[in-house]
Structures are given as C-alpha cells and as structure tokens.
C-alpha cells in the first residue's frame, strides 16, 4: 500500500498526478460569468445602477472576472503545453 502511494507522489511531483486540473473549471466558470455580466452591463440602462452609486457594476466587474478567468485558462494551457514538450 505504502509503495503505491509513494509512486503516486512521484507522479505528482512531475505535474500530472492529481486528478483534474482545477484551473480549467475555475477559468471557464469565471470567464463565462465575465462574458454574461459584461454583456448584461452593456445592454442595461443607467437607472439600474443608481443603487451602485452610478457604477455600471455588471460591466466593470464582468470585465474583471473575464480577465481573472482568462488568466486561469492561460495558466492551465501553458502547463499542458509544457507537459507535452517534455520528452517521455
């Protein structure tokens, strides 16, 4: 049992052990939220943003989330590329 865990540990050190790259779902979810809220912010009019002190919160926060989400996706894809480049 212990030996098996050890080998698994070593796999992880090489960057492919754990089950699923969590950067992907986080990246997709936040990007999708960013796009949805950003578009909603573009099509809604000013009156709606009186309560948020005049800020078009959907647009600005949507853009921010899109950037964060894209950052996660980029990190995930770069990591995948690096793994592919590594000689087997």
């Amino acid at each position: 049992m212990n030996e098996k865990i050890e080998t698994k540990g070593q796999h992880t050190e090489q960057g492919k052990g754990h089950f699923l790259d969590l950067k992907l779902p986080i990246g997709w979810l936040l990007s999708a939220y960013g796009v949805l809220l950003g578009i909603y912010g573009l099509v809604t009019d000013k009156e709606m943003y009186q309560k948020s002190l005049g800020f078009n919160l959907n647009l600005s926060w949507g853009v921010l989330m899109l950037l964060i989400g894209a950052g996660f996706l980029l990190a995930a894809f770069l990591k995948k590329d690096k793994e592919r480049a590594r000689p087997q």
Partner: peptide
Amino acid sequence: VMILVGYSLKKYMKTGEDFFLSGRS
C-alpha cells in the same frame, strides 16, 4: 460546473485513499 467536476472525478475513485483522501495527491 459543480456537477460536471464531480462527474469527471468519478473515474479516478479506485481506492479508499482516492475517495477519502484524494489519493494524497
């Protein structure tokens, strides 16, 4: 997203350690 993440993990749960301790990974 939560349901998809859960579903995509299903095939990795082969031992008790995978299920209870994420395979210590």
